Computed example of a mutant assay.
Amino acid sequence: MAHTDGFDIVRLDETALDGALALSEEAGWNQAADDWRIFFRSGVVYGLREGDAIVATGAILPYAGFGWISMVLTTRAARGRGIGTAILKQATADLAELGCVPVLDATPAGERIYRPLGFLPVAPLWRWRGTSPGSGDVAAGIAQAGESDRDWIIARDAKAFGAPRADLVASLIERAPALALVMPAANGFVLARPGRAATSIGPVVADDEASAVALLEAALAIIDGPVLIDVPEGRTGIEALLTRHGFTKERPYLRMAHGRAEPFGSPDTLFAIAGPELG
């Protein structure tokens, strides 16, 4: 694909799935094979090979007006050589060529790399981790999404997120239909997906936080086991619910955009993101 900072970065196809999955597993990340397939099928996966091994990856998901950068991973043995930064530069350049503002969710360590490259802070987030007992009690007014709900969920997600991502939303519904819940009275929904080690909840979208709390409570009532959820800072109702259920803050993220500090979409209706890798 390109020689960036002296590295021969190539575009990977789905035959590289096992190698990519091995990288995210080595890093302790929660992505399952189906998560990687989203990038192979709807975006671009970059890689650096040394011999037969994939030693680094990165990915983009182009949307309308902006695009997501994620899955920037390097094996432990290959770290410290600037490979991840080279892949990030390639991803940023490719999105700019498509007319998309590059956006990402940065860890504190990543933030120090991204700021000098022109990424500006947009919004802080927190990763919460806990275990849900799965009580099975779902409040009135909340139901499992049916086929007739799919179009409005996709439209509502697009308004909150800032761009249509119909294939992604449809794949989340199909992967965990029992966890695709709707609250039509509040234009609200919650989606979730099984990961390698925990269920990831998100996005959670609703007109108001009380409705978002009810939707999240319903999802937790169904899930029995480890859970991850990424919440914009300042969602006090969501935070109180998670604290009540024994969840703890694991790490901060900072949403950043290249050359832009304004958020996309309608962040006041977004109470949990799909994940730092998906936006």
Rank of each mutant, 00 (worst) to 15 (best):
L216I: 05
V190K: 00
S200H: 10
T75N: 08
L23I: 11
S266F: 01
V138P: 09
R175G: 02
A139N: 07
D52W: 02
R41L: 02
A272Y: 01
G110K: 11
R193F: 00
F40S: 06
A185M: 08
L220G: 08
A91D: 02
P62E: 01
S148T: 12
E97L: 15
T131H: 13
L117A: 09
L228S: 07
A192H: 00
V55G: 03
V101L: 01
S148P: 07
F271S: 09
I273H: 04
D94V: 13
N187S: 14
D230F: 01
S211C: 05
A139L: 09
A166N: 07
L17F: 06
A272L: 04
G279A: 12
G99D: 00
R235V: 09
I222W: 02
T74A: 13
R49K: 15
S135Y: 06
L61V: 01
W128C: 07
T107R: 05
G195Y: 01
S42F: 13
P194E: 11
F161I: 10
W126F: 14
G84L: 04
R81F: 05
S24H: 11
I54R: 08
E233P: 06
G19S: 06
V204A: 01
F161G: 07
R76D: 08
A33F: 05
V190W: 03
V10K: 10
H3Q: 15
P226V: 03
Y63W: 14
L215P: 02
G67A: 05
V190D: 01
R150M: 04
P276V: 02
V45R: 03
W128H: 06
I153S: 00
F271N: 07
G118I: 04
L179M: 03
F39L: 11
G225N: 03
T92E: 09
A20N: 12
R127M: 07
W128D: 06
W128V: 01
R127K: 07
F40K: 09
G195L: 03
S24L: 06
E50Q: 14
K89R: 15
A78W: 12
R76F: 13
A106W: 02
P232Y: 11
D207Y: 04
A123V: 10
H258V: 10
Y114S: 11
L61A: 02
G43P: 08
I142H: 02
Y63C: 07
G237M: 10
A212P: 00
D268E: 14
V231P: 00
A158Q: 03
G275T: 03
D268I: 01
P276Y: 02
I54P: 06
G43V: 05
R115G: 08
A93M: 07
T15S: 15
A218S: 12
P194H: 11
A176H: 03
D105E: 15
V169F: 04
G67I: 04
L21S: 14
G259E: 03
R251K: 15
E209S: 06
Q90H: 12
G51R: 10
E26K: 11
F161W: 06
D268S: 14
A219L: 01
I238H: 02
G188L: 05
A145K: 05
S135L: 09
A221G: 12
G84F: 08
I9N: 09
P124Y: 09
Q31V: 04
I229F: 01
G279N: 12
D207T: 14
H3E: 15
G65A: 14
F161V: 04
Y63H: 14
L228V: 12
S266V: 14
A16D: 14
R11D: 13
R150Y: 00
T57F: 09
G141W: 00
P108F: 09
Q90K: 15
A158K: 07
